[in-house]
Amino acid sequence: MTGKMQNKATGFVLNFRDYGESDRIVTFFTDQTGKLKGIAKGARRSQKRFANAIEPFSLSAIIFSRRRAEGLCLIEDCRVLNHFPRIREDLEKTLMASYFIDLADSFTEEGAVSHRLFKHMSDFLNLLEAEKAGESIMRLFEFRLLCISGYEPTLGHCISCRKPVESLKEISFGISDGGIKCEKCAPLTAGRISISPGTARTLVAGKNMPVEKLRRLIFTEYSLRESRLFLVPLIRHITGRQLKSLNVLMEVKHLTDTI
């Protein structure tokens, strides 16, 4: 008896870092065990056990074992199931997929299983693989992730008087409130972000819509801007930091826009 048990899982690579001469410490988000952190011995050299499988956002079949309940597991084998080639050959898609996994990493704890989050990641990476890298995909990923993680912003009604958004003309979003308020309940002050009821309704409509139908959801440039203006600060408020991948995404966008 060696005292270690071999397990199998399917997961997306969230991040990795080189360790020692040829090892890698990898974090996966798996369907079976949630966030899983392990050491892949010889991963930088072995073309047999880890060939191309440890790459950001790749979906891999993992064989791992652990001696203790906590701490790093040993990644024994990793085989790539989907490396999302269309994403990898497009700069905007790669940066967006990198942001998705960074977000997923920030909203999960090690060992906490979430089949909904796994499906969410799978749905949106496949959507990104098939569709143009539009900003609406990014905003819907953020919004649905917040809903899955228990941080759903209340957009369907005023959180004070509970009037439905359909009956409201002017609304604003408060980051610390986590929801919208009508103009009567909260006048637009420095701490509140003005959004239109149409933007709130579009996001609510996209909450449970099957991912293959999301392309029918039309975001105007205006509603994309409004969504960005409250979702990004809300995520920063929840995670306590601005995600590095979002900074890189914006830096590249700024650079390529000025060419």
Partner: peptide, 18 residues
């Protein structure tokens, strides 16, 4: 030929257009 290397190559290619 990694995700990072490929995206860097794509960025350089974009910047050299024209």
């Amino acid at each position: 030929p990694s995700v990072q290397g490929e995206s860097t190559a794509l960025l350089i290619k974009r910047m050299l257009e024209g």
